[in-house]
Amino acid sequence: MSIQHFRVALIPFFAAFCLPVFAHPETLVKVKDAEDQLGARVGYIELDLNSGKILESFRPEERFPMMSTFKVLLCGAVLSRVDAGQEQLGRRIHYSQNDLVKYSPVTEKHLTDGMTVRELCSAAITMSDNTAANLLLTTIGGPKELTAFLHNMGDHVTRLDRWEPELNEAIPNDERDTTMPAAMATTLRKLLTGELLTLASRQQLIDWMEADKVAGPLLRSALPAGWFIADKSGASERGSRGIIAALGPDGKPSRIVVIYTTGSQATMDERNRQIAEIGASLIKHW
């Protein structure tokens, strides 16, 4: 058993032996400061991975655009179909130039040979490839079927209504393609630790998130040596930015963190910096 498999397999085991986890309101002070700095709403939640207890939250039940963070949920739905014998990670999917949409750094290189379902999930999560996400959405029946999958998990909040890139429109008060921090954190925890997916599929999902290559300026920039993080970021119109993550010290995840912001006029660099500073406060007061 690899170190990674050891880590995921023991998450339920550690729940019975973990020390009490204490919240630190200092992080919420930073979240509120980020709102002031960005001139935008910020949603935040910090969840204990083992118990599911909410440690801190700010606007946990307000809607925010999901942006590309939905791609983790999408690959969770794909893995659920794999577990049920309805899909194979090794199945190759062929597509054409007409299928390519904006920001497809991986799929645009494989027009001649296509990509496997496994490769598409990797591209969608680690590189946020939009065509990969659309191709995967097609395999499960489209955005409405992803919403149905989430409903069956008990998440009646999170919804996907459109495809890439239209889902990134982020119109104020538009509930399409949105979630709430509390709903996203709970759903992510179920995917990573619950019985919905097999152990192998849970491991695969967290491996893809751990290999994320496009979230460096966010929480990863504040991470001390030896800490673990598996994450997925997102960005969209109207100053929207977000990240969902499982992270913790000693090389294993122990908390879920979800951060969303929307409605800012700030630059992408400034949005990144504010999220990184929230992460730094979280780690300092861990």
Rank of each mutant, 00 (worst) to 15 (best):
P249S: 04
R238W: 11
M66I: 09
A170C: 12
G234S: 00
I259L: 08
Q265S: 14
K30T: 09
A182V: 15
D99N: 11
F22A: 12
L223D: 02
G226L: 03
S96I: 09
R159A: 03
R220N: 02
F22C: 13
M115F: 00
A170R: 09
P224D: 04
L73G: 04
E175Y: 11
E237V: 08
Y260V: 04
K53I: 12
A276T: 07
K32I: 10
L74A: 04
S240A: 13
K252P: 03
R59C: 02
L223G: 01
I283G: 01
G90A: 15
W286A: 00
K213A: 13
F14C: 12
S221E: 10
A84V: 12
A40K: 02
H285V: 05
L38F: 06
R7Y: 11
R271A: 10
E46K: 06
E108K: 10
R241A: 02
D174R: 01
G226E: 07
S221N: 12
D212V: 04
N173A: 10
F22D: 15
L79G: 00
A200M: 10
T198N: 10
E145S: 13
V21C: 14
A276S: 09
D113E: 13
R202S: 12
L136Q: 00
L89V: 05
I11N: 06
T107G: 04
R176G: 05
R271K: 08
R189C: 13
R162H: 08
T198S: 13
G39V: 09
G279R: 03
T69Y: 02
P253M: 14
E56R: 06
G154W: 15
R91I: 02
K32R: 13
Y44K: 02
G226D: 09
E87S: 04
Q203S: 11
F14L: 13
P181N: 00
G226V: 03
C75S: 04
S281I: 12
D83E: 08
I11G: 10
K109I: 11
A133E: 00
G141R: 04
A222Y: 09
P165S: 04
T179M: 00
A182K: 14
T186H: 14
L38M: 09
R255L: 03
I11M: 14
T267V: 08
G85E: 09
G239V: 03
L28R: 07
I256C: 04
L188E: 00
W227A: 02
G52I: 02
T112I: 14
E119G: 09
A246T: 08
K190Q: 03
A9G: 15
W208D: 04
R189Q: 12
L10A: 13
P172G: 10
R81M: 08
Y44L: 08
N50R: 15
I125L: 13
A9R: 10
S221F: 07
L218Y: 02
